[in-house]
Design a protein around this nucleic acid. Structure first.
Length: 415
DNA sequence: TCTGGGGTCCTAGGACCC
DNA sequence: TCTGGGGTCCTAGGACCC
């Protein structure tokens, strides 16, 4: 049996922990670059603000209703998330952290009354210890736990906890959940399912698994089986090794100079390699790209190039020339570039590669000195000269709250 | 004026192996 | 007339998740 404990309106709830003036008011949190609303309080949802709505399209609504707006503060959300997990693992051994605001718990040997009691107690502990409201969904499969959670979130009569382990309960509540709200059913499948008259989670659960496979893939078949009460996925207690990683950003303003593209790409490349070094990984391939906005008029251009890294590498400084050559070869004048980024793929443990005596080894001492200094004094303290070109590419973040729990100078004072 | 940034998994098709 | 039957690996594209 699984429980899914999911934080309500997570980023907004994080902002409210330290800023009481946001409680009870409509609040939204924006994506990077202050572009779209990526989290909304209940009050903001009630105003009709949709997930992903661009800020410039909801300006009037924001002004009219006094919606409070925050830039995203991932340092804060990451730390609050860690505290939520800490609170859960203090009393539960089998926990899978599924996302920044969701954790699956493996429940065993409890009857339904005990499960309900445990879930309510956990919800209260997270609220008391961390200050974050949550809902808990329970079911014999992860998909049913997710569905139970979604139903509990929408309907206050459940007081934040719903157990769908009982088939009779499922018959009662699954028909109230739209098919598109089922975990694993996105926009494309929703349209496909609708065309054959499948509208609700109840309808999905009633599909023949073979038919489901024909409509979608083995993934939809599994979803159907899980909704019908069959467990097809175990809890993942250990994190799987990372397969690839990315560091990409939209620019604060359009970029029209190759120097600034190089500065942005060098910065993203440093960050991507920092990420894999932190996990003792090396990459077999490096991909670079920059592009114009898909939303704006004017000439379009998407430049990209992939480099095989032989031997696999974790050292950004070795690849600076590639960035320069790539931009030089593909930059076009007269284009407003909007975004750039770096992918590292083919990640594998460092040391698992047989070095040839012809290969230049990465300079590990230089990389680790860089990491140590930047960790201690802040990201970007030590960087290459090529990164210091222009300011248009830098991210906009005009309404960010303090890092209350992760920066000494931001820690709240109690008088 | 102004539209995010990460990830995973599956399938089909092609190249290649014996 | 008629030419097997397995495998693996890689890539691109699509769908999904938060």
């Amino acid at each position: 049996m699984y429980a899914l404990i999911d934080c309500n309106n997570f980023y907004v709830s994080c902002e409210r922990v330290f800023d009481a003036s946001l409680r009870g008011k409509p609040v939204i949190v924006l994506s990077n670059n202050d572009g779209c609303a990526v989290a909304r309080s209940q009050e903001a949802k009630a105003l009709g603000i949709k997930m992903g709505a661009p800020l410039f399209k909801i300006r009037d609504l924001v002004k009219e209703h006094g919606v409070r707006v925050r830039s995203s503060n991932y340092e804060l959300y990451g730390d609050i998330s860690r505290r939520v997990v800490e609170t859960i693992t203090a009393t539960h051994a089998r926990v899978e952290t599924y996302s920044i605001d969701e954790n699956f718990i493996g429940f065993a040997g409890l009857n339904s009354a005990a499960r309900y009691h445990e879930s309510t107690a956990l919800k209260e502990r997270v609220a008391q210890h961390v200050g974050i409201p949550t809902c808990v969904g329970i079911g014999p499969s992860k998909t049913l736990a997710k569905a139970a959670n979604a139903i509990a979130k929408k309907n206050p009569i459940f007081k934040g906890v719903l157990d769908l382990s009982d088939a009779a309960q499922r018959c009662l509540y699954l028909p109230a959940l739209p098919a598109g709200d089922v975990w694993g059913v996105g926009a494309a499948l929703t349209a496909k399912l609708l065309s054959i008259g499948v509208q609700t989670a109840g309808d999905v659960a009633a599909l023949d698994p073979r038919q489901a496979r024909a409509i979608g893939t083995v993934v939809l078949e599994r979803t159907v089986r899980e909704l019908a009460g069959e467990n097809c996925q175990q809890i993942a207690l250990d994190a799987k090794p990372l397969q690839g990683t990315a560091a990409t950003r939209s620019f604060g303003k359009p970029v029209r100079s190759p120097d600034e593209l190089v500065a942005a790409l060098m910065t993203h490349m440093q960050r991507a390699f920092e990420k894999i070094r932190a996990q003792q990984l090396v990459a077999e391939s490096l991909s670079l790209f920059f592009l114009t906005s898909p939303f704006r008029n004017g000439p379009r251009h998407h430049a990209s190039q992939t480099f095989q890294l032989l031997p696999p590498s974790d050292d950004a400084l070795r690849h600076a020339e590639k960035v320069r050559d790539f931009v030089e070869a593909q930059f076009r004048t007269g284009h407003d570039y909007a975004k750039a980024g770096v992918f590292l793929n083919g990640l594998r443990p460092r040391g698992a590669w047989q070095l040839s005596w012809l290969d230049d080894a990465d300079d590990e001492r230089l990389s680790s000195a860089l990491d140590n200094i930047n960790h201690r004094y802040g990201r970007g303290t030590l960087r290459t000269a090529a990164q210091i070109r222009g300011t248009d590419w830098l991210m906009q973040r005009k309404m960010q709250s303090p890092c209350w729990t992760t920066r000494l100078r931001d820690v709240p004072r109690v008088r």
